[in-house]
Amino acid sequence: MIKVEKMKIEKQTEIAKNIYELKLKGTLVNEISMPGQFVHIKVNTANDPLLRRPISISSYDKEQQTMTLIYRASGLGTRELTNQTDEIDVMGPLGSGFPVDGAEGKTAILIGGGIGVPPLYECSKQLKNKGFKVIHVLGFESKETVFYESAFKALGSVYITTADGSYGTNGFVTDAIRAFNLQADVFYACGPVPMLGAVEKQLDDIPGFISMEQRMGCGIGACLACVCTVNGPELYKKVCTDGPVFRKGELVYG
């Protein structure tokens, strides 16, 4: 069930350059059903900015009724969010998540690019709890934007790539997968569209799930601002309600 709640801000910290970790507390957490879902946040009480901001849920704890969000402060709304210290208006949980219950095999590879990394953390925790060996390939622009490396290392092996070569493997996530000959039974990916297309092409021999990054308006499927092209008779789907997670092969790239 989707709720709108003023959630208490328990902690907010800058964990990398312009990357913030936001911990919230409230009963909305009880409604989260799977990793990979997101929330829509009203960043202040005024009407500027008017639209809510979609932010992925990085992790959650239903017993403590807390959830952690990680976001990049890059625009008016998210920069304003960094100034919030008391409570915040949250709508969610929204969208479909990563289906970890139906995953088959023994090894999963999780692939994230930039701000697409956060939703993979809860996914990794749940896969590990189900007995999977988890491998993480995380891509960033530079060393100063890398975050959560040690958190992911506590769950499984981690391979970092940076576009400028300042840390880890020089290049993209696909370069690391190739260089280290990483093998898995299933993959989970979240990041920019070009990255997702490249990952699907590279891992065409195993099943997988991808989470689509897209600009959104309402977040509930009414405004059609986040429509994407898909294979099949429907032709189009809404990222906010039909996604953001899709099965490999559903999306049309380019």
Rank of each mutant, 00 (worst) to 15 (best):
I19T: 14
A151G: 03
A198F: 08
L24C: 12
G114S: 04
V193K: 06
G249S: 04
G26A: 12
L28G: 11
G156H: 05
V43E: 04
E87T: 12
K42G: 05
V146R: 00
D86E: 15
G165M: 10
Q84S: 10
A108W: 00
E141K: 14
T68G: 01
D86C: 04
S211F: 03
M7P: 10
F132E: 13
G77W: 06
P49H: 05
Y121T: 00
P194V: 10
N44V: 08
K238W: 08
V29S: 05
Y253V: 09
F152L: 10
G156E: 08
I109S: 03
V100Y: 00
L196D: 01
E144T: 14
I70N: 00
G102W: 04
G139Q: 02
F98K: 02
Q126D: 03
G116S: 09
P192K: 00
E250T: 15
L196Y: 05
Q126K: 13
V252K: 15
F246W: 01
C240W: 11
A154T: 11
M1K: 10
G92F: 08
R53W: 03
G156R: 03
F187G: 00
P99H: 02
F132L: 07
K42W: 14
E141N: 11
Y188K: 03
D204N: 15
K42H: 13
I210A: 01
G243M: 09
N181E: 15
G139L: 09
I41F: 09
G197L: 07
M91R: 14
M195D: 01
T169D: 11
Y121F: 15
K130D: 07
F172A: 03
R72K: 13
F180G: 02
D175I: 09
E14H: 03
L127K: 00
K128G: 04
K128T: 13
G168L: 07
E149T: 02
D89H: 12
Y167H: 13
N129A: 14
E87Q: 14
A103R: 01
G26R: 08
S150K: 15
E63R: 04
K25H: 12
T82H: 06
N181S: 15
E213P: 04
K3G: 05
D101V: 08
V100D: 00
L22V: 11
N44K: 02
V137L: 06
E234W: 05
K11P: 03
R72W: 04
Q214I: 09
I160G: 01
M34I: 08
K17M: 06
D242T: 07
Q65H: 09
A73C: 08
N231P: 04
D101L: 13
T241W: 04
R215I: 12
K62R: 07
A154H: 09
S166M: 05
I206D: 02
P35A: 02
L155V: 08
I9W: 09
A73G: 07
K25I: 06
A225G: 14
S166Q: 02
I115H: 00
P54K: 00
